[in-house]
């Protein structure tokens, strides 16, 4: 009987999770059952280490908040980006096309329209366009069927933006000669021609969503370019 009793007592002698938490949180330096037991029992010592780690992690999770004014500024910029995204996905009404759609139509009759899709953006972490970008600039790469278009945007000294780009054929084919383009930002329209190598530069671009139309042969490549370079 005595042996059986001893066995029962021994089985109860492991510390449970709650006792270990109480022990860790009590901060009492006095000797207790748990503190004595932990020195002799690996199983409970491991449990205690785990509990200690978790309490430490909880303490580390009390992160200080940034200044409210910074949160507000970041929120406003994020919301501005959201509205640009919404604008980019909006439908074009055929009855009253927006100014940029009319501007693109004026580029030529019967052009086959290709909507380019952005495949890389230095603002979003990506290995494709990482590195080499000067401070405040943004690099984007677009796919337009048999062409790739690289766009680099950076603020100029006056606070407007400078856009440098290049159209590159994906195959060894040559670029059709006489390439030209039109950029619409709000009600502004800017024009440029492509170099022999497909390069182009546009200066003094105001803030806002940019729509770029590039005429190459009988095709019109359309790009929507977000521009969060600076406060709107």
């Amino acid at each position: 009987m005595r042996t059986r009793g001893t066995v029962i007592v021994m089985k109860r002698k492991h510390a449970n999770w709650e006792e270990i938490l109480d022990y860790l949180e009590s901060g009492e330096p006095t000797e207790t059952f748990v503190s004595a037991h932990l020195r002799t029992c690996d199983r409970c010592a491991r449990l205690c280490a785990e509990a200690r780690k978790m309490l430490k992690l909880c303490a580390a999770a009390r992160l200080p908040q940034p200044p409210a004014e910074l949160i507000e500024r970041a929120t406003e910029r994020a919301l501005a980006e959201l509205s640009i995204e919404r604008e980019m996905t909006e439908e074009i009404s055929p009855s009253s096309p927006p100014a940029w759609a009319r501007a693109f139509r004026a580029l030529g009759e019967g052009l086959a329209e290709i909507q380019a899709t952005m495949v890389a953006d230095s603002l979003v972490p990506s290995h494709a366009v990482r590195g080499g970008a000067p401070e405040g600039s943004r690099t984007m790469i677009y796919n337009a069927q048999s062409y790739s278009v690289a766009i680099s945007l950076r603020p100029d000294a006056t606070g407007a933006a400078l856009l440098v780009g290049q159209v590159v054929p994906k195959t060894s084919a040559k670029l059709p000669p006489g390439g030209r383009l039109k950029l619409c930002v709000g009600h502004r329209e800017l024009e440029a021609v492509l170099s022999r190598h497909g390069e182009f530069v546009l200066r003094d671009i105001p803030a806002g969503l940019m729509r770029l139309g590039i005429v190459l042969g009988r095709s019109l490549i359309r790009l929507d370019i977000p521009s969060p370079l600076r406060e709107a």
Binding site: R73, T75, R77, E81, L82, E85, L123, V124, P226, P228
Partner: peptide, 15 residues
């Protein structure tokens, strides 16, 4: 530090 905070929020919108 402020730039990183704002750029992260922007990147989150885009990603």
């Amino acid at each position: 530090r402020d730039d990183l905070f704002q750029n992260t929020c922007l990147a989150a919108v885009r990603a």
